[in-house]
Design a protein around this nucleic acid. Sequence first.
DNA 1: CCGTTGACGGCGA
DNA 2: ATCGCCGCCAACG
Length: 128
Amino acid sequence: MSEFTDAVIYICRQVPFGTVASYGQVAAYTGVARAARQVGWTLNRIEGEIEVPWWRIVNNAGRISIKNTEFNTPLLMKQMLENEGVEVRPDYTFDIEKYRFRPSVEQMRSWQLDDAYIELICMKYLIQ
DNA sequence: CCGTTGACGGCGA
DNA sequence: ATCGCCGCCAACG
């Protein structure tokens, strides 16, 4: 298992119940800012093997974008989110800013991110 | 070896 | 708003 894969798993497990994080957000928190695509690819690859709240990782446009896989379906993802109080529309979109995971600076520091980088991420994701 | 393809996303035109 | 391009990189044919 690569370091990146480990980091993705580690970050995803810290996304709280009832909140969501975009693929790009997870990538940013692992320290590889533009690896959103790899986050999706990684989650798809480890499903069924490693326990991770995969349903809390979503498209930054506020849309459920997974495809049918061996284990998961968009409908299952919608139900998992609704079980946590996230209102998902019939067309699989939702208000991402309402539910977005917004870690504290302390928590981001615990991920070994330096302050300048954290400042950048805050500008990107802390706005409501 | 090489082009294409993803559970993606930011930016410029 | 919408589109194309590119970064990222493993897997597949």
